[in-house]
Design a protein around this nucleic acid. Structure first.
Length: 152
DNA sequence: GCCAACGTTGGC
DNA sequence: GCCAACGTTGGC
């Protein structure tokens, strides 16, 4: 089983929003970055755990945990001209973009702020904390996962 | 709102 | 294949 971190803007889609979806499950559409797509398409497996990260908000940080419940399949929003994620280069033959389904697992007792993650010596090499990192999906090592859980 | 850091696009 | 211009992300 692998560990991941996925970013979402809580104004758009928060961990609470995920919890309130039918079966607490939602498809993770709108990823339009090849590195992030490749991780979803090639590496994310059912049962993998995901830190749900709130970005672009007053206190960015990890809100809780979700898990992968459906492996990669074409992101239909790429083929929908009405969607803000529409990509004219995507087609049924060549969907170009993919998504997975994630299910709410639990919300932390408190949001774990980015500032605290930055201050933790054990997380010094974490991808999330690298300067200029803008990937919306990234791998988390088992060590990092456990360190972070111990901080909540 | 600012700005650094990237990723993508497209002309050549 | 290079690279400038542009767009986006996301913390602050």
């Amino acid at each position: 089983m692998a560990y991941w971190l996925m970013k979402s803007e809580p104004d758009t889609f928060s961990l609470e929003d995920l919890r309130s979806r039918p079966n607490s499950t939602e498809h993770w559409d709108g990823v339009r970055n090849y590195q992030a797509r490749n991780m979803m398409r090639d590496q994310m497996k059912c049962g993998d755990k995901v830190f749900f990260y709130h970005s672009s908000c007053p206190v960015p940080g990890i809100a809780g945990i979700a898990k992968v419940v459906k492996e990669a399949y074409p992101d239909a929003s790429a083929q929908n001209p009405e969607s803000r994620y529409y990509d004219p280069k995507a087609s049924a033959d060549n969907p170009r973009w993919f998504m997975v389904d994630v299910k709410f697992e639990r919300k932390f007792k408190r949001l774990l702020p980015l500032a605290e993650l930055k201050a933790a010596p054990a997380l010094g090499s974490m991808a999330l904390l690298r300067k200029g990192n803008r990937l919306s999906i990234m791998a988390v090592s088992k060590d990092e996962w456990q360190q972070i859980l111990a901080m909540v």
